[in-house]
Structures are given as C-alpha cells and as structure tokens.
C-alpha cells in the first residue's frame, strides 16, 4: 500500500483531457462531496448504523476510484467491508484513516488545479 501513489497521475491527465474546461469544477465537486461523505460516515458510526456506514463508504469508494485516488479508495473499502460485516468496532480508526488520506489527496488535487 505504501508503494501506491496517493494520486494516479495518468488517470488525472486523462480526466483533464476528458473534462476540458470543466476539470476544475470536477475537482471542486469531488472535494465538496468528499467532505459531505466524511460527515455522513461519522454520523453513521455515531448512530451505530452499519447499513448506512456501508453505503456511504461504498459510494465514497466509487468516486475516489474515478478521481484516481487509490489509497483513499482502499480506506473506504475497509470501512465498507466493516459495515457489510456489521462490525463497527473499528469505525473510529477507519474514519481517521479516511480523513487523513483525504487531506493528502485534497492538497495534491489543488496543486493540479493550479497547473
């Protein structure tokens, strides 16, 4: 895992090509949604709602894959699995991992937008 990059630069280049002028809007959209998902997953853990926990994690995982953030996607996947198994005992660590990775990814993405 530590060998993986935080951002898949090839994928991002491709995305920039696809999105054209809307690339920045896409990144911002992703970042806004990410914050919202983080809030939702925290709330689900607090409410001990494994189903919601799982669903939000799954959704977050998907958008992370598409944006080219593989490590973030893996963190979400771990949370999704926990939710699937209805085991929220480690939810705090999982959420912390997601939050941490998101911070790194956000910073790198902002640099992309400036280019």
């Amino acid at each position: 895992m530590s060998d993986q990059q935080h951002l898949d630069h090839e994928a991002l280049t491709e995305l920039r090509d696809v999105m054209g002028d809307e690339f920045n809007i896409l990144i911002n959209t992703f970042l806004e949604d990410a914050d919202e998902r983080l809030r939702q997953i925290t709330e689900a853990a607090r409410a001990e709602d494994a189903a919601s926990f799982r669903k939000v994690a799954h959704s977050f995982k998907g958008s992370s894959i598409n944006i080219g953030a593989p490590i973030l996607a893996d963190c979400c996947f771990a949370a999704e699995q926990a939710g699937k198994e209805e085991n929220l005992s480690h939810s705090a660590e999982q959420i912390a991992a997601i939050e941490g990775e998101l911070a790194t990814v956000s910073e790198q993405l902002r640099r992309y937008m400036q280019d």
Binding site: L15, V18, M19, L26, F30, D33, S59
Partner: peptide
C-alpha cells in the same frame, strides 16, 4: 448518486 461520477460520465458521453 455521485455527482463527480456523473460529471465524468456526462463529459465522456457528450464528447
């Protein structure tokens, strides 16, 4: 349900 995913698909398809 993912806005960013929707945006990506939309861009690919319209292009």
């Amino acid at each position: 349900d993912n806005q960013s995913d929707r945006m990506i698909l939309h861009a690919i398809l319209t292009r």
